[in-house]
Write a protein that binds this DNA or RNA. Structure first.
Length: 879
RNA sequence: GGGCGCGUAGCUCAGUGGGAGAGCACUCGCCUUACAAGCGAGGGGUCGUAGGUUCGAAACCUACCGCGCCCA
C-alpha cells in the first residue's frame, strides 16, 4: 500500500489493535509457542473424551521439509485441529525414521572428506559417529513443522532407533522367526554396487533406458544357436541356453549341449515354458546368478549358478576380463566375440527397462546372495482381507485397487541390508553351525566362536511397526489402549506399497488382528501450475519455508489444502499462494471492520423474530456452511471445504453482509445492537470453521474478537436447523439481483461509481423486499426520484421488479440497446429450450412431475422477461 | 506387454441423468472511511472424437484418438 497517495483522514474507530494489513511474521512464532506451552497438543490417555489419533509418516532424519510434506502435514493438522475442536482427545504423534542408507551415506561422505571410510573407524565408532551427526544436524524438519503450525504432541516424539522402538523391532523379529515367517536363504536379490547392500523390490526404480541388443552365436555349424542379450558381459556366467518347448526351430537341439564362447565350457540347451519364442531368436542365454528370471529357470532345471562379479560389479572370472567393471567388460567381451565372428546382429540404441537404486540411482545388479526374508504370504493375505472386509477403508476407494494389486501379488521381502546404521539382525551363529534368534529380554549366547549376524534390517521393517511401536508396544501402555488403532493414516498414494502395506501386515500380526488404522486417506503429489512434477533439476520446486517466510504459514497451508482433492495431485503456484495470502488479509480486514463497528459475542444471539432479513439470511447461510464444511472435512474433501469457506467468507460475508449491514451499523438503536451481535457471531463461527486450515490468523482474530483464550480449544460450530430461513434466502437473492442489475446498467452506461442516479423502484413487494428499498438504494447508489423525475431508462428485473432511472438527459442508447439485445437473446434461448421440452409428448409423459413443473416455471419467467425487455427496447429513443 | 486413471473456459480444476461452474489470467470502470493484498461490471466453452442407451447425456455404455501413472 502506498502511504504517500493515501489522502484519506485516518479512521479513529477502535480496531482492537489490528493494523491495516495482516503481518503473519509478527504472529506465527509467538502463537505457536503459546499453544505448545499451554499443552493444547498434549494427548491425555486418561481423558474421557473419545480418541482420535494419527501417527505422522516419519520423515527421514536427514531430510528437510519439502512441499509434499507441507501438504501432508497441512492435511493431518487440519484433521487434528478439526477433531480437537469437536471434542476428541487428539493424539498426533510425531517422529522420524533412521533412513539406513541415506543417513549412512551422509556420514560416510563426511568421513570421505577426511579421506576416511567407515571401515577405518570400525562399526562401533561409526555408529557412534552417526548418533553424533543426528544430535548435531539431524531432524531439521522438526523445526520446520513448528513453522507450519503442526499441532503434534512433541512430548511423544519418537525415532525408529530409540530404545523402545528397537525393542519392538527385536520382539517382532523374534516372533516372526519363531513362526517361520522370517527365513534366511540364498536368493537373487537387487544389489546396489555403490551402496553395497541388498535392496527390496520396491527400492528399485525402473526406467526405460538406451542400451544395446546384441545377438551372439553360441556353438558352430548345425548345432549353432543365436541368443540375444542386453547384457553381453554376463555370458561368462551362462550355464544354459533356453528355448520354448514348443518352438519348432529348436526341437532338435533341446537336450543337447553347446560350447559357450570365450570359456570353452559346454552348457545344456533346455526347454522352458517361460521363454518368449517371439523375442529375438526365441533362444535366451541363462545366467542364474545375475538375472532373476534366469535364476528361476535355473531352479527349474537344476542348473548351476556362477557368480562372475564381486559386490562392486567387477568381473572376477580369471582371464582377460578379470578386474573390469560391468560397463568395461561389456564392450571388451563384445569385441572379443566379434573377433571370433560370433556377433550376428547389434542394435543400438535399444530401449529396455533398467532398475536403479532408488537412493543413489546406480543401476541395480541382480546378485545371488544369502539374505533374510519375510515370508509375506499369510501376512499379505491378512493385509488384503482387512481392506476387503471393510475394517480398513481406503480413501478415495478407487485407489484400493492399487493396494490389492500390490498385496495380492507380493513377493517375499528381502529385509537384510549390508549396512551398519540400523537395527542389527538379532541372530547369533555358533561355532558348530548353530543359529539362535534372540528375543529382547534374552541374553545372546556368548563364548568362543559365537558371532552376531552382521546385517541390519530394512528401515521399512521398523517403520512398519510405527503405529504401535511409537505408543510403547510391546508394553501394554495406556496410550496404546486409548489410541490404537489409529483413526486415520494420511499419506501419498505413491507410498501405498512401501509403507501402508507393511504397517498393515505387521499391525495385524502383532496386534492380534487389530488393524493399525481405520482409514487410509490418500493424497496426491504436489505439482506446479502446469501439472508438472516438481523437481530440483527442472527448477520448478517450491520451498515451503520460502512461502511461509514471504506469505505466511496460513497462506501456504490454504494453497495446499485448497488443491487437495482426495487421491488427486495438487497443483500449486506462487500466484495462488498470493491469493491465499489475500484471503487471510480479507479476513483480517473484515474482523477489523467488525471491531470498528462494535461487533460483539456478548449475550444471547437475538431470536430470529427480532432480526432483519439480512441478519436472518447470513445466519441461514452460516448454518448451511457449518453443515457442509463439517461433512467435507469428515470425508477428506479439503479442497471443497476450503472452497465453501472461501466463498462464504468473501462473497456472502464480506461482499454482501458487511455492505448491507453498514447502514444499520452506522445507527445506534436496538436494531444496530442486534446486528452487532449477529456480525460478531458470524465472524466467531467463521473463524472457528477456518481455524483447522489457517490456524494462525484465525487465532489472532478470534482472540481479539471474543476475548477468549484460544480458538484451538474452542468448540466446533454446530449447525442450528432452526436458523435456516428459506424466505430470507429468497429475499436476499432477489435483492442481490436488483442491485446487480442496476450496477450492470451503470457500468454499461459508463456512469462513475460515485455518481448518484435518481430512480423509481416498483414491484419490490412482489418478492417481499419492499422494506429493503433503502438498502438497495444504498448499494446501487440510487437517489429517490426528485420532483422533475423523468425516466430515461427502464430495467426489467426478473420477478416483476422494475427500476426506472433518470440519468439526467444523457443516455448511451447504443449501449443500452446492446444490453437489452443481449438479455433478449438469453431469454429467447431459454424460452425456446423450455418450449422444445414442453412440446415433446415423451417428455411430458415420462419426466418426473417436478421437472416438468420446473420447466413450465422457467418458461413463464422467460416470457415475462421477454415482454419487459421488448417494452424497454420500444421505449428507447431511436438512434 | 499388463493394469489403473484422466481429456470441461487461456491455465489449473470442480461438476456424475433435468438451467455449463470456480480460482487465477484477461477486458472496462473506480482510492468508495474494513481491505488497491481492494471494489464494481464484463468477455470467454461444438464438455477429446464417433456411435449407442434415455423423454433428456458433460455425466451411463462401446469404440477410437491423445495424455499421465503404476507394475513387468
Amino acid at each position: 500500500m502506498s502511504e504517500a497517495t493515501d489522502t484519506r483522514t485516518p479512521d479513529t474507530r477502535p480496531t482492537g489493535g489490528l493494523s491495516a494489513q495482516y503481518q503473519p511474521g509478527e504472529v506465527e512464532q509467538r502463537r505457536y509457542e503459546q499453544w505448545v506451552s499451554a499443552g493444547y497438543f498434549t494427548a491425555d490417555p486418561a481423558s474421557d473424551k473419545p480418541p482420535f489419533s494419527i501417527v505422522i509418516p516419519p520423515p527421514n532424519v536427514t531430510g528437510s521439509m519439502h512441499v509434499g510434506h507441507a501438504l501432508e502435514h497441512t492435511i493431518m493438522d487440519t484433521l487434528s485441529r478439526f477433531k480437537r475442536m469437536q471434542g476428541f482427545e487428539v493424539l498426533w504423534l510425531p517422529g522420524m525414521d533412521h533412513a539406513g542408507i541415506a543417513t549412512q551415506n551422509v556420514v560416510e561422505r563426511q568421513l570421505a572428506a577426511q579421506q576416511l571410510s567407515r571401515h577405518d573407524l570400525g562399526r562401533e565408532a561409526f555408529v557412534e559417529k552417526v548418533w553424533q551427526w543426528k544430535a548435531e544436524s539431524g531432524g531439521a524438519i522438526t523445526g520446520q513443522m513448528r513453522r507450519l503450525g503442526d499441532s503434534v504432541d512433541w512430548s511423544r516424539e519418537r525415532f525408529t532407533m530409540d530404545e523402545g522402538l528397537s525393542k519392538a523391532v527385536q520382539t517382532i523379529f523374534k516372533r516372526l522367526y519363531d513362526d517361520g515367517l522370517i527365513y534366511r536363504a540364498e536368493r537373487i536379490i537387487n544389489w546396489c554396487p555403490r551402496c553395497l547392500t541388498a535392496l527390496s523390490d520396491i527400492e528399485v526404480e525402473h526406467t526405460d533406458d538406451d542400451g544395446e541388443l546384441v545377438s551372439i552365436r553360441y556353438g558352430d555349424g548345425a548345432d549353432a544357436i543365436v541368443v540375444a542379450t542386453t547384457r553381453a558381459e554376463t555370458m561368462l556366467g551362462d550355464t544354459a541356453v533356453a528355448v520354448h518347448p514348443d518352438d519348432e526351430r529348436y526341437q532338435h537341439l533341446i537336450g543337447t549341449e553347446v560350447e559357450l564362447p570365450l570359456t570353452g565350457r559346454r552348457i545344456p540347451i533346455v526347454a522352458d515354458e517361460h521363454v518368449d519364442p517371439a523375442f529375438g531368436t526365441g533362444a535366451v542365454k541363462v545366467t542364474p546368478a545375475h538375472d532373476p528370471n534366469d535364476f528361476e529357470i535355473g531352479r527349474r532345471h537344476n542348473l548351476p549358478s556362477m557368480t562372475i562379479m564381486d559386490e562392486r560389479a567387477v568381473v572376477t572370472v580369471p582371464g582377460p576380463f578379470e578386474g573390469l567393471d560391468r560397463y568395461e567388460a561389456r564392450p571388451a567381451i563384445v569385441a572379443a566375440l566379434r573377433e571370433q565372428g560370433r556377433i550376428v546382429a547389434e542394435k543400438r540404441p535399444y530401449q529396455h527397462s533398467v532398475g536403479h537404486c532408488s537412493r543413489c540411482k546406480t543401476t541395480v545388479e541382480p546378485r545371488l546372495s544369502l539374505q533374510w526374508f519375510v515370508n509375506t504370504g499369510p501376512l499379505a493375505k491378512a493385509a488384503g482381507d482387512a481392506v476387503r472386509d471393510g475394517r480398513v477403508s481406503i480413501e478415495p476407494p478407487e485407489l484400493a485397487k492399487r493396494y490389492f494389486a500390490w498385496v495380492d501379488n507380493m513377493h517375499d521381502w528381502c529385509i537384510s541390508r549390508q549396512l551398519w546404521w540400523g537395527h542389527r539382525i538379532p541372530v547369533w551363529y555358533g561355532p558348530a553351525g548353530e543359529v539362535v534368534c534372540v528375543g529382547p529380554d534374552e541374553e545372546p549366547p556368548s563364548g568362543e566362536g559365537w558371532r552376531q549376524d552382521e546385517d541390519v534390517l530394512d528401515t521399512w521393517f521398523s517403520s512398519g511397526l510405527w503405529p504401535f511401536s511409537t505408543m510403547g508396544w510391546p508394553q501394554q501402555t495406556e496410550t496404546l489402549a486409548k489410541f490404537y488403532p489409529t483413526s486415520v493414516l494420511v499419506t501419498g498414494y505413491d507410498i501405498l506399497f512401501f509403507w501402508v502395506a507393511r504397517m498393515m501386515m505387521f499391525g495385524l500380526y502383532a496386534m492380534d488382528g487389530v488393524q493399525p488404522f481405520d482409514v487410509v486417506a490418500l493424497h496426491g503429489l504436489v505439482r506446479d501450475a502446469h501439472g508438472k512434477k516438481m523437481s530440483k533439476s527442472f527448477g520448478n520446486a517450491v520451498d515451503p519455508l520460502d512461502w511461509i517466510e514471504r506469505y505466511g504459514a496460513d497462506a501456504t497451508r490454504f494453497t495446499l489444502a485448497r488443491g487437495a482433492n482426495p487421491g488427486s495431485d495438487v497443483p500449486i503456484s506462487e500466484e495462488w499462494c498470493q491469493g491465499s495470502r489475500n484471503f487471510c488479509n480479507k479476513l483480517w480486514n473484515a474482523t477489523r471492520f467488525a471491531l470498528m463497528n462494535g461487533a460483539t459475542v456478548e449475550g444471547e444471539l437475538p431470536a430470529s423474530a427480532e432480526l432483519s432479513s439480512v441478519d436472518k439470511w447470513i445466519l441461514s447461510r452460516l448454518q448451511h456452511v457449518i453443515a457442509e464444511v463439517g461433512e467435507q472435512l469428515a470425508t477428506y474433501e479439503f479442497a471443497k471445504a476450503c472452497d465453501t469457506l472461501y466463498h462464504f467468507a468473501w462473497d456472502d460475508v464480506c461482499d454482501w453482509y458487511v455492505e448491507l449491514s453498514k447502514p444499520v451499523l452506522a445507527t445506534d438503536g436496538a436494531e444496530a445492537a442486534r446486528s452487532r451481535r449477529v456480525l460478531g457471531h458470524v465472524l466467531d463461527q467463521l473463524l472457528r470453521l477456518l481455524h483447522p486450515v489457517i490456524p494462525f490468523v484465525t487465532e489472532e482474530l478470534w482472540t481479539v474478537l471474543t476475548g477468549a483464550e484460544s480458538v484451538v480449544v474452542a468448540a466446533w460450530p454446530v449447525a442450528d436447523a432452526a436458523r435456516i430461513d428459506d424466505v430470507a434466502e429468497e429475499e436476499l437473492a432477489a435483492l442481490q439481483k436488483v442491485v446487480t442489475e442496476v450496477r450492470r446498467f451503470r457500468s454499461d452506461q459508463g456512469l462513475r461509481p460515485g455518481q448518484r442516479v435518481s430512480a423509481a423502484l416498483t414491484g419490490l413487494g412482489n418478492v417481499g423486499i419492499d422494506v429493503h428499498e433503502p438498502l438497495i438504494r444504498a448499494l446501487a447508489r440510487l437517489d429517490a426520484p426528485s420532483a422533475e423525475f423523468a425516466a430515461t431508462a427502464t430495467l426489467a428485473v426478473t420477478g416483476g421488479i422494475t427500476v426506472d432511472l433518470d440519468t439526467r438527459g444523457t443516455i448511451d442508447v447504443a449501449a443500452e440497446r446492446a444490453r437489452l439485445d443481449k438479455d433478449r437473446a438469453a431469454a429467447e434461448k431459454e424460452a425456446a429450450q423450455c418450449r422444445a421440452k414442453l412440446d415433446n409428448d415423451a417428455f411430458i409423459g415420462k419426466a418426473p412431475e417436478q421437472v416438468v413443473a420446473k420447466i413450465k416455471d422457467r418458461l413463464a419467467t422467460a416470457e415475462a422477461d421477454l415482454a419487459r425487455i421488448a417494452a424497454a427496447l420500444k421505449a428507447l429513443p431511436s438512434a
